[in-house]
């Protein structure tokens, strides 16, 4: 999976640069997040601007990141969801689990 990682103070911004998050590529994101947690970085914002399609495996990778961040007193926030991606969080009721922001700036403000 193509992802870009930027850091802003203590927050790591993960930008997913793929149109699809599915069983083929979501494992990469999960592993990358685990590496970040091992490095002690547990304030994550995931920018999903480019993602047009997400399946249960993609959602599972995000849940894994959320659980691991929470277990380390950190956080995982999502931003910039396209409507079809947002609808997947509603279908699976995961919109009640994640903090979801319209823009990256709002997610970063919510972080502090």
């Amino acid at each position: 999976m193509q992802i870009k990682i930027n850091e802003k103070e203590e927050t790591v911004i993960i930008t997913v640069e793929e149109e699809r998050m599915d069983a083929h590529n979501s494992g990469n994101l999960k592993e990358r997040m685990l590496q970040l947690f091992d490095e002690g970085k547990c304030q994550l914002v995931i920018d999903l601007t480019a993602v047009r399609f997400i399946d249960s495996s993609g959602l599972g990778a995000l849940v894994s990141g959320f659980k691991n961040a929470s277990a380390r007193d950190g956080s995982l926030k999502l931003c910039c969801l396209q409507p079809q991606v947002r609808s997947m969080f509603e279908l699976t009721r995961l919109h009640r689990v994640f903090e979801i922001f319209t823009t990256l700036e709002e997610a970063l403000e919510g972080q502090s």
Binding site: D55, S56, S57, L59, G60, A61, V63, S64, F66, K67, L91, T92, R93, L94, R96, V97
Partner: peptide, 18 residues
């Protein structure tokens, strides 16, 4: 139904819903 923090177990339920 998958619990909110389960990583897997949603695929078949998604199919059944749609």
């Amino acid at each position: 139904n998958a619990q909110p923090c389960d990583e897997g177990g949603r695929g078949i339920n998604i199919i059944l819903k749609l």
